[in-house]
Design a protein around this nucleic acid. Structure first.
Lengths: 187, 187
DNA sequence: TCCTTGTGGCTAATGACGTTAGCTCAAAGC
DNA sequence: GCTTTGAGCTAACGTCATTAGCCACAAGGA
């Protein structure tokens, strides 16, 4: 019985990869164990059941998305920063639909919850985009929610094949960035 | 063994109600059967398994949402129509989160699929909102996708308790309608 | 009124999945 | 080398979706 050398991080990473390939409902303890060359119950030594697993996948996804958007925004401002952030976010969701799906409906337990810090970093990246515009202090929360709704909605719908009819999706996304940029600039 | 007098419509309606109360993952054949005063396998006489059930729930949700938004928009134009449509949509999703959740990721099989006609009606309602603005013909598809992303994203995030921090959510929604109205008006 | 037939509902059984209990032996520390 | 810890295993259970096959009720024709 040679040890497989697993640890929580490995299990979560494999789970996230599986989620991206098979969809979040497709990640099953049996399949995940099989991928890791181990029997199903062994996973419970590293992860506290299914709920805990998707929670950790969600935390990983938020951290990665926060990094990606934060990096994209660095050194840019105005429309440039907005476009970079939006593209980075969309690219992440399209490349990792399962991971990202794990994040919806997760409630952090406290401010130290990895889920909360990941979400905070992502939020901070978008907030820095707004700093490149003359958005009144009282409006930033609203603007932030709009940005989030827009990015989340678009990327989610696209990754679920929600845009079926004719027009080019990339073009729509560009249009949407322009629209938002104009709106934010005229405040 | 007195007959229960079920039919597909009754089963789907009960399933939709259950989804709203218990969440989409909470709708289980056993629970649904119990609610209808029947044993689990009996449901298969009316519905072709779980997938078919949520598909029908999704079709019902889209038809209802299309009706709600279509009715709200009737006789209005411009900002009035936009606000009415957005509010009607958000209210529907918040009142029926489970039903609505059933719609994401459903692909219609053809143009006669109830799923497609429901989605079409909803789409048409939003398209009529755009007719109240001077949106160039070439831009309507993009604008439509933006409206959809915004409404879908906002309502979805809100119903998943995605807006945790301070600012008032109703206020944010008003702000978002204003933002969109201004943007659409200056085209 | 009786027989026939279609069908809605039932019981029983199967297979996938998540989860727990309890064992065992490999690896790490002394 | 000996002890101790814990990673991984087998066995088992409960829940859920689904199928097979039976049975009785309702409707229609003789």
């Amino acid at each position: 019985m040679p040890r497989a050398g697993l640890d929580p991080a490995t299990v979560v990473a494999a789970g996230a990869a599986l989620a991206d390939e098979a969809g979040l409902p497709g990640v099953t303890m049996g399949l995940l164990a099989q991928r890791l060359g181990v029997r199903t119950p062994s996973l419970y030594k590293h992860v506290d059941g299914m709920d805990d697993l998707v929670r950790r996948i969600a935390a990983l996804a938020l951290a990665e998305a926060g990094d990606a958007v934060g990096l994209a925004v660095r050194g840019r401002a105005g429309r440039d920063a907005l476009a970079a952030a939006a593209h980075a976010f969309r690219a992440f969701v399209l490349a990792h639909p399962g991971r990202y799906a794990a994040t919806v409906g997760q409630e952090p337990t406290g401010p130290d919850d990895p889920l909360a810090v990941g979400a905070g970093r992502l939020l901070e990246a978008f907030r820095s985009v707004l700093r490149g515009y003359d958005v009144p202090e009282a409006d930033t929360d609203h603007a932030l929610r709009m940005l989030r709704s827009l990015c989340h909605g678009f990327a989610t719908l696209e990754s679920a094949h929600g845009f079926r009819w004719s027009a080019d999706v990339d073009e729509s996304f560009e249009w949407l960035i322009d629209f938002t940029d104009h709106g934010l600039r005229s405040m």
